[in-house]
Design a protein around this nucleic acid. Structure first.
Length: 415
DNA sequence: AGTCCACAGGAAGGGCAGGCGA
DNA sequence: TCGCCTGCCCTTCCTGTGGACT
């Protein structure tokens, strides 16, 4: 969008729109509305006390404690689905460890790195460079060989007890392989690694030597239940909002989030978006309908964004799933009809022909269907129909309303 | 009990685009 | 700028599989 110079509109438009914009800005400046501090509802905000993770905090602390007495802690592998508190729990223990080390003058350093950070820690070079910078040494963006970076890093580490926490370690390994981990775990220095991931199968694909060394200790974070989510939300309400929030609203949000996967990130997001709805409506408290709106909005955004970002082929596959489901439902209940991969592929071929798209092989389409499963749009399971073969049954996780929206979106893409 | 269906999904490799070092 | 490397998408080939049918 061009933002230079003065743009000119019709005079009437100008006065009306300008007035609106002024009002919005003025209202915003006057107060942060219902919010006192929005950051409190961010999933990365680390609270003073982490609720319902006492056992995990204790476990991680006692695993890392040996560093304070000059021993090398075991490597730890932390696993849990999204929003189970893996990161904030680990980070807060690392913070405490650093504090304790400083207070007792121990040469212990705990470093946290998110491996998904683009341009910071997504290649071997950048990751090493980032680690070296943590020790206050300058490293050029590019130019050094990886070997000399390793040398620099091991020099920096020498004599210290270093704990490196690699969050989303699966993303790292997918990108640069596991030699990096191998090199670190094999080092002579007192170097411990905490790997955090929500992808358990990732662990199985590692080099066996890395696996045995990284998996010295394993900690699994279970999803929160509704009661725990409620506690977590309640603990943040006071700091986040300048308004009171009814307990029944919190319960509702907790229940919704627990239904899904016990995901605290989602619970917090629901609370924040509900409040934003209330605020935009000019209401002074959150009501149930705000929560309903928020839940629908979040679902909608998540799914439509996921679909919009897909390549044409994937969109065609999704359109095929919908088309088969529609014809199978045949005016009956959309919700209960199930779809078979065979039919989807046949429909996909037809759609490709119609829109002039080169059709992919069944093998590939099978993988594309699998990808939609990771978005949570569909769920599949392998069924056998005896003499009539073995195939995947596809269950679509969208209500009628969402379905119409997605179909509209696909239609806009020409499918 | 054995056969056979029709796809799931692993393995290997081709082709292409984009990134990177020289 | 060029050539090499790497990652990604996709195909081909292949083995495995649960249960209806014979």
């Amino acid at each position: 969008m061009e933002m230079t110079g003065t743009l000119s509109y019709g005079a009437a438009y100008e006065t009306k729109v300008e007035q609106q914009i002024k009002t919005i800005f003025a209202n915003y400046i006057k107060s942060d509305g219902l919010f006192k501090d929005r950051n409190v509802l961010s999933s990365t905000w680390v609270p003073n006390r982490i609720l319902h993770r006492d056992a995990e905090v204790l476990q991680i602390s006692s695993l890392l404690a040996p560093a304070l007495r000059g021993y090398k802690p075991n490597n730890v592998f932390v696993y849990g689905t999204v929003g189970t508190g893996k990161t904030i729990t680990t980070v807060s223990v690392l913070n405490e460890l650093n504090k304790a080390a400083k207070a007792n003058k121990r040469d212990v350093k705990a470093i946290y790195l998110n491996c998904k950070m683009k341009r910071v820690s997504d290649t071997e070079y950048r990751l090493l460079a980032q680690l070296i910078r943590e020790f206050g040494e300058a490293v050029p963006e590019t130019g050094l060989s990886t070997a000399s970076l390793y040398q620099k890093f091991f020099d920096a580490v020498k004599g210290k007890h270093v704990i490196i926490c690699l969050d989303e370690i699966d993303a790292l390994v997918n990108k640069i392989g596991d030699t990096f981990l191998y090199n670190l775990t094999r080092s002579e220095q007192s170097l411990s690694i905490i790997g955090i991931t929500n992808n358990l199968s990732f662990f199985d694909n590692l080099d066996t030597r890395v696996k045995s060394s990284l998996g010295e200790e394993e900690i699994i974070f279970k999803p929160y239940n509704a009661v725990q989510l409620k506690d977590i939300l309640m603990s943040r309400v006071g700091q986040a909002f300048s308004m009171p929030v009814d307990e029944s609203i919190i319960s509702k949000i907790a229940a919704l989030a627990a239904q899904e996967h016990g995901d605290a990130r989602r619970a917090l997001e629901l609370l924040r978006v509900s409040a934003e709805f209330a605020e935009r409506n000019g209401d002074s408290v959150i009501t149930e309908s705000h929560v309903d709106f928020a839940a629908e909005r979040i679902d909608h955004d998540r799914i439509t964004e996921a679909i919009k970002g897909q390549p044409k082929q994937s969109q065609a596959v999704l359109a095929s799933i919908f088309a088969v489901k529609d014809s199978a439902a045949n005016g009956g209940s959309w919700k209960d009809t199930r779809v078979l991969s065979t039919d989807v592929y046949a429909m996909y071929r037809k759609i490709c022909e119609r829109v002039g798209l080169k059709s992919l092989t069944q093998r590939r389409v099978s993988d594309l269907i699998g990808e939609f499963e990771t978005f949570g749009v569909i769920e599949t399971r392998v069924i056998s129909r005896g003499r009539y073969g073995r195939m995947r049954e596809i269950i679509v996780h969208l209500n009628e309303q969402m379905k119409l929206k997605v179909q509209k979106l696909l239609a806009e893409e020409g499918l």
